[in-house]
């Protein structure tokens, strides 16, 4: 699939990236104004990875997400108003306002959930892959995680199981350079995290995570391999998060200059330039994508804000099965 030359695909990819960006900017603003509680993790700057990756999926495929999961949700087709309602602690949210940013799941679209545990989605993805295989289906499972996850025991166990059982899983590492404040260069001895694949006997490839086409091509190939019963793959998409790890990050572990240099490599600007250069879309069509994303996010905020607040009165219904209210 050519994201840059095919007008329909380019429109879709660009609108998805802008929607992720605008959604997170709105969330950032809501938090800054004290209107959103708890904390959340923003993926601004990383939009090309979920966008390129999820374009390789089709109905029935699964994803597992991370604590930084708004982009994965949106790219997999979640409803913005239900996401926003979850973040605003509204009854209409994906988890009835009880989970917040880090627990959005949408089984209807195959999204098995964000996860507050680093590498927590990896064994879940292996499990989903096992289910697909046992049912004799041809679905693929895409597991997103960060560079911090690859040194977790759960990551090793999940990837190894998927490898030895040839499960249809694609492991996508969003290497955004830091696990909280720990530089990936200090946390790992290998040059590319994709090199880890060799230890499990599966293919591993490193791609430019700010280029949705590169991400898409690598994921597409891996998904086809998975559907064909040839087992999992590891894809490392190198990208960067512009914002702090969470809401109380002073950025003491990196420099302003480094952040600015990555802002210059904005995946959205790069993609827009490429699409214009190929004359796939016009300036006004680009603007239409931007406007569509903005309007969708604003509509989601309006709908979510008008919804009833989540109530603590019957919280126990989420704790006991069929128990007292």
């Amino acid at each position: 699939m050519d994201l840059v030359k095919d007008a329909e695909t380019a429109t879709s990819a660009l609108t998805t990236m802008w929607t992720i960006r605008r959604f997170e900017e709105a969330v950032d603003d809501l938090f800054a104004r004290g209107l959103m509680h708890g904390t959340m993790h923003l993926s601004i700057g990383q939009e090309a990875v979920p966008t390129g990756a999820c374009l390789a999926l089709r109905e029935g495929d699964y994803i597992t997400s991370t604590h930084r999961g708004h982009g994965h949700c949106i790219a997999k087709g979640a409803q913005l108003d239900r996401m926003m309602a979850e973040l605003l602690a509204k009854e209409t949210g994906y988890c009835r306002g009880r989970g917040g940013s880090m627990h959005i799941a949408d089984v209807a679209t195959g999204n098995l959930g964000a996860n507050g545990i680093v590498a927590g989605g990896v064994p879940i993805a292996a499990g989903a892959g096992l289910a697909v295989k046992m049912r004799g289906q041809s679905h693929a499972v895409l597991s997103f995680f960060g560079d911090g996850a690859v040194n977790e025991g759960a990551w090793h166990e999940g990837v190894n199981l998927a490898a030895i059982w040839d499960l249809p899983v694609v492991f996508v590492c969003e290497n955004n350079k830091y696990g909280m404040s720990m530089s990936v260069n200090r946390a790992s001895k290998v040059d590319n995290l994709a090199d880890r694949a060799a230890a499990y006997g599966i293919p591993g490839v490193t791609v430019d995570g700010n280029d949705p086409q590169e991400v898409h091509d690598a994921v597409d190939e891996a998904v086809e391999r998975a559907r064909a019963g040839n087992g999992p793959s590891l894809i490392e998409a190198v990208t960067y998060r512009w914002k702090g790890h969470s809401k109380s990050d002073k950025n003491l572990y990196r420099s302003r200059e480094e952040i600015d240099s990555w802002r210059e490599q904005d995946p959205i600007t790069r993609f827009e330039t490429a699409v214009l250069h190929q004359q796939t879309l016009t300036e006004s069509e680009l603007a239409a994508c931007r406007d569509a994303a903005r309007d969708a996010v604003r509509a989601a905020i309006r709908t979510a804000n008008a919804a009833p607040d989540a109530s603590a009165d019957e919280l126990l219904s989420a704790v006991y099965s069929g128990g007292k209210q």
Binding site: R22, E25, A26, D29, L30, R33, G34, L35, H37, L88, R294, V297, R298, I301, R302, N305, A306, A307, D309
Partner: peptide
């Protein structure tokens, strides 16, 4: 992004006033 969206009556209770 938030212009005019949060002034309505539904409000956000205690946190509001923004």
């Amino acid at each position: 992004l938030l212009d005019g969206l949060l002034d309505g009556p539904s409000g956000n209770g205690s946190a509001g006033s923004g």
